[in-house]
Simulated scan of single mutants.
Amino acid sequence: MGRLGPTEIILILVVIILLFGAKKLPDMARSLGKSARILKSEAKAMKDDDKSAAPADPPNTTDDQQPPAQRVIQASPGDVKSSRPVNESTDTTQR
């Protein structure tokens, strides 16, 4: 009990195809892959930001506030339609 044999796996796949339809499955797999790539790139970007965001001395603040830096988050390599600029806070204090 608890182990799936080839018969059970085939039965599960048939039920999935019947529920979602054969036409929707490739689109679902494609969107799942795109989401995984986005998540991976965002996790890498956050890790890179953490490494470079720890300055030794806090910057001198003046009355002239600079606008937050912008960076472009790309949905997936080569997908320029989903790119969008993102305003990020330069506040390094913890909330």
Rank of each mutant, 00 (worst) to 15 (best):
P68W: 04
K34V: 10
R3T: 14
T61V: 09
A43K: 14
G33W: 08
L32A: 15
G33A: 12
Q94G: 04
L13T: 03
Q74Y: 05
R30I: 07
R37W: 02
K23S: 06
S41G: 01
K24F: 05
I9E: 11
R3S: 15
K81T: 07
M28T: 04
P58K: 07
T61H: 06
L18Q: 06
L39S: 08
L25R: 05
A54R: 14
T61E: 11
M46A: 13
I10E: 14
L13P: 00
P58F: 09
S35R: 14
A45P: 00
D64Q: 10
I9C: 06
K47P: 00
S31C: 01
R3I: 12
P58W: 09
D79R: 07
L39P: 00
L25M: 15
L18D: 08
I16L: 15
R3M: 12
S31Y: 08
A43V: 08
P55T: 04
M28D: 04
Q74V: 14
G78V: 03
E42C: 08
D27I: 09
S83P: 00
D79C: 02
K44R: 14
R84N: 06
Q65M: 07
A45L: 15
T93G: 03
G78T: 04
G78I: 02
A36L: 15
G33Q: 10
A53K: 06
F20I: 04
S89Q: 07
P68H: 02
R84V: 14
K51E: 12
G21T: 02
R71Q: 10
D91Y: 02
A53R: 13
K23L: 07
L39C: 07
V15R: 13
